[in-house]
Amino acid sequence: MATVKFKYKGEEKEVDISKIKKVWRVGKMISFTWDEGGGKTGRGAVSEKDAPKELLQMLEKQ
């Protein structure tokens, strides 16, 4: 499965696309949330040019 790689608060992170729940556009950035388990929700953002095609497809479906 595809993953999204991004930096959050200076830390490199990687999230499996299948865990992503919500995707939206903020200017030229793609923001998203995912389920971290245990009732926690993670947040992240990646530039439109660095976003994997699967993430962009999720954005178009909404």
Rank of each mutant, 00 (worst) to 15 (best):
1 M>E: 15
1 M>H: 14
1 M>V: 09
2 A>V: 13
2 A>H: 12
2 A>C: 14
3 T>D: 01
3 T>G: 02
3 T>L: 07
4 V>S: 00
4 V>Y: 01
4 V>I: 08
4 V>D: 00
4 V>N: 00
5 K>D: 01
6 F>T: 03
6 F>R: 00
6 F>Q: 01
6 F>W: 03
6 F>M: 02
7 K>A: 04
7 K>I: 09
7 K>R: 13
7 K>D: 04
7 K>G: 03
8 Y>N: 03
8 Y>D: 06
8 Y>I: 03
8 Y>G: 01
9 K>D: 06
9 K>G: 06
9 K>T: 01
10 G>T: 02
11 E>T: 07
11 E>Q: 10
11 E>G: 13
11 E>F: 07
12 E>L: 13
12 E>A: 06
13 K>V: 10
13 K>T: 05
13 K>G: 02
13 K>F: 08
13 K>L: 10
14 E>W: 04
14 E>D: 06
14 E>M: 03
14 E>S: 05
14 E>G: 01
14 E>Q: 04
15 V>L: 04
15 V>Y: 01
15 V>T: 03
16 D>H: 09
16 D>M: 11
16 D>W: 07
16 D>L: 13
16 D>E: 10
17 I>W: 01
17 I>L: 12
17 I>Q: 03
17 I>F: 02
17 I>P: 02
18 S>W: 13
18 S>I: 11
18 S>N: 11
19 K>Y: 14
19 K>L: 14
19 K>E: 12
19 K>N: 13
19 K>F: 13
19 K>V: 11
19 K>I: 11
19 K>R: 07
19 K>D: 13
20 I>W: 01
20 I>A: 01
20 I>R: 00
21 K>H: 14
22 K>F: 15
22 K>M: 14
23 V>A: 12
23 V>F: 08
23 V>Q: 02
24 W>A: 03
24 W>I: 03
24 W>R: 03
24 W>H: 03
24 W>C: 13
25 R>Y: 08
25 R>E: 04
25 R>D: 03
25 R>V: 04
25 R>H: 05
26 V>A: 11
26 V>N: 11
26 V>S: 12
26 V>Q: 06
26 V>M: 10
26 V>I: 11
26 V>Y: 10
26 V>W: 07
27 G>D: 15
27 G>H: 10
27 G>E: 08
27 G>W: 08
28 K>I: 06
28 K>H: 05
28 K>F: 08
28 K>T: 07
29 M>P: 02
29 M>E: 09
29 M>K: 06
29 M>S: 14
29 M>N: 09
29 M>T: 05
30 I>W: 03
30 I>N: 00
30 I>C: 06
30 I>Q: 00
30 I>S: 00
31 S>F: 11
31 S>W: 07
31 S>R: 10
31 S>Q: 08
32 F>R: 00
33 T>Y: 07
33 T>P: 00
34 W>A: 01
34 W>I: 02
34 W>R: 00
34 W>K: 00
35 D>R: 09
35 D>T: 09
35 D>I: 11
35 D>K: 05
35 D>C: 15
36 E>N: 07
36 E>H: 09
36 E>Q: 08
37 G>A: 06
37 G>P: 06
38 G>K: 05
38 G>Q: 09
38 G>M: 06
38 G>T: 12
39 G>Q: 12
39 G>D: 12
39 G>H: 05
40 K>P: 10
40 K>A: 13
40 K>F: 14
41 T>F: 13
41 T>A: 08
41 T>I: 13
41 T>D: 14
42 G>H: 07
42 G>F: 14
43 R>W: 06
43 R>F: 11
44 G>Y: 12
44 G>N: 03
44 G>V: 13
44 G>K: 02
44 G>F: 15
45 A>Y: 15
45 A>D: 15
45 A>F: 10
46 V>L: 05
46 V>D: 00
46 V>N: 02
46 V>Q: 03
46 V>T: 06
46 V>S: 03
46 V>H: 02
47 S>L: 07
47 S>V: 08
47 S>P: 13
47 S>N: 09
48 E>F: 04
48 E>R: 06
49 K>E: 05
50 D>C: 14
50 D>L: 09
50 D>N: 06
51 A>T: 12
51 A>D: 02
52 P>G: 04
52 P>I: 07
52 P>T: 04
52 P>C: 05
52 P>V: 05
53 K>P: 12
53 K>H: 05
53 K>N: 08
53 K>L: 11
54 E>K: 04
54 E>Q: 08
54 E>D: 05
54 E>M: 07
55 L>H: 00
55 L>N: 00
55 L>G: 00
55 L>C: 01
55 L>S: 00
55 L>I: 04
55 L>P: 00
55 L>Q: 00
55 L>V: 04
56 L>E: 06
56 L>H: 10
56 L>N: 06
56 L>Y: 13
56 L>M: 15
57 Q>S: 08
57 Q>G: 07
57 Q>T: 07
57 Q>I: 10
57 Q>V: 12
58 M>D: 03
58 M>A: 11
58 M>H: 05
59 L>A: 09
59 L>I: 06
59 L>N: 03
59 L>D: 03
60 E>F: 07
60 E>A: 13
61 K>A: 13
61 K>M: 12
61 K>P: 12
61 K>F: 11
61 K>C: 15
62 Q>P: 13
62 Q>E: 14
62 Q>D: 15
